[in-house]
Design a protein around this nucleic acid. Structure first.
Length: 412
RNA sequence: GCGGGCAUAGCUCAGCUGGUAGAGCGCCAGGUUGUGGUCCUGGAUGUCACGGGUUCGAGUCCCGUUGCUCGCCCCA
């Protein structure tokens, strides 16, 4: 469109089928999360910048380059939420709910990240989110994952999706492993890609999920965390797998799944599809026992996941259908008054019903067809005299006279 | 922030080595002033993304810009 008015980069309008797909994802997730005992929370779309920067580290790229941050008119530093978890943890603390654990939270809505759009990746995007705060047991991890799996199944996308799990261990395991990795990659420094050479300085774990071919062969022989797990950490991971089996969630281990920040530990997982190119993660999460404390609350264990609604929406096997309406078609001005009564009676009976605002019979029938009506209720003067309407099935073309009072019942 | 591809009607696209813009679908009207879908006939619609350059002449070639798209970086 050669127009000066365009939506900002990375934003998009949800209209028609796009909106129906989007809404179907939310409705399905909300319904299933409720079965698992999760309550829906709505937290602000923007927060004090510190809600996010405090837990991310002031200097990381994420904070300096990829958040939508600004000063409001009162001079406060504000950030549009880039994810749901931090705001939920803030709400947990400010509402005193650390006294009422565990809390099981479902959340859905827009998130904002200032980054380059790609397939299924936008600047304003939408997520569904599940957090279980206040349990340190691996059963909690398994339940959170099982809930996600059931949502993917209900959406019809589970067939192309596989759950990959890993453990990041506890703090001691992680520290030992990190040291071993730095030692290993330092020996291969010259053979690493330039990106990974700088990762070695900043965030060595990230080398493990590098997409570079040269890195991959080196990574393949790198030590895994398995050899560095403390006994409690190894036991936690083993119990998680047992519980996943009991919940009937298939999985495979992927020791290359990592997390960048220190408050993550133990469980890390991703549901991955091969159908979205480079952006294959459709749902991801893990355990973040350190986050609530960094937010200023008491030490509180927690586990959760988030999933991008846009990605799930484009994977839906079939577009959600609009319920077919009934079209009320008056013939002549006198019939309009009766038709409006019929129209409202149908709506009050829970039937989606529409009336064209103008046009002769033919145009109104065309209109009825175009909006996908399943039936047309044609009402003319002679019908009114007999107290009936002509109900035409628009699929079969059959038409029968129905008493006006019976219409809601007959069209249900 | 970096790299590749793309940009023509509401949509999907055609337009050869430069010669003043096309199709299908959709839309509007008629065939049918009380019956839609299929069919027939007619009609409207474009700053060829934007700006500059080369040329007698640019949708077409060159440069720049913007947007879209795929990927990299990043991924809370």
């Amino acid at each position: 469109m050669p127009n000066e008015l365009q939506p900002p980069r990375g934003t998009h309008d949800l209209i028609g089928e796009d909106q129906r797909r989007h809404q179907h994802v939310i409705d399905t997730a909300r319904r299933i999360a409720a079965l698992y005992g999760f309550d829906e929370w709505s937290t602000p779309l923007f927060e004090d910048t510190r809600v996010f920067s405090r837990t991310l580290g002031e200097t990381s790229d994420v904070v300096t380059k990829e958040m939508y941050s600004f000063q409001d008119r009162g001079g406060d530093a504000i950030t549009l939420r880039p994810e749901a978890t931090a705001g939920i943890c803030r709400a947990l603390v400010t509402n005193g709910l650390t006294q009422s654990l565990p809390q099981k939270v479902f959340c859905a809505g827009p998130m904002f990240r200032y980054e380059r759009p790609q397939k299924g990746r936008y600047r304003q995007f939408h997520q569904i989110d599940v957090e279980l705060i206040g349990s340190a047991e691996p059963l909690a991890d398994a339940e959170v994952i099982a809930c996600g799996w059931e949502i993917l199944k209900a959406l019809g996308v589970a067939g192309d999706t596989v759950l990959e799990i890993n453990t990041l261990g506890d703090a001691e395991s992680r520290q030992d492993y990190r040291g071993a990795l730095v030692g290993y990659f330092s020996k291969h420094h010259a053979a690493l890609s330039a990106d990974s050479q700088s990762r070695l300085e900043r965030n060595p774990l990230r080398i493990l999920d590098s997409k570079d071919e040269r890195d991959r062969t080196i990574v393949a022989n790198a030590p895994t965390i398995a050899g560095f797990l403390t006994e409690p950490a190894a036991k936690f991971y083993a119990r998680l797998q047992t519980y996943l089996d009991r919940f009937g969630v298939p999985f495979r281990e992927n020791p290359r799944i990592v997390r960048g920040l220190d408050y993550y530990g133990h469980t890390a997982f991703e549901f991955v599809t091969s159908k979205l190119g480079a952006q294959g993660t459709v749902m991801g999460g893990g355990r973040y026992d350190g986050l609530v404390e960094e937010m200023g609350g008491p030490p509180t264990p927690a586990v959760g996941w988030a999933a991008g609604i846009e990605r799930l929406a484009m994977l839906l096997p079939d577009p959600p259908r609009v319920p077919a309406p009934v079209a009320v078609v008056p013939v002549g001005e006198a019939a309009e008054a009766v038709s409006l009564n019929v129209l409202q009676a149908l709506r009050h009976a829970g039937i989606r019903a529409e009336i064209a605002y103008r046009g002769n019979l033919r145009r109104r029938m065309e209109r009825a067809n175009r909006i996908g009506a399943r039936a047309a209720v044609v009402i003319g003067d002679d019908d009114i005299a007999e107290g009936v309407a002509q109900v035409k099935d628009l699929a079969s073309g059959e038409q029968v006279a129905v008493a006006l009072a019976d219409l809601p019942h007959r069209l249900r």
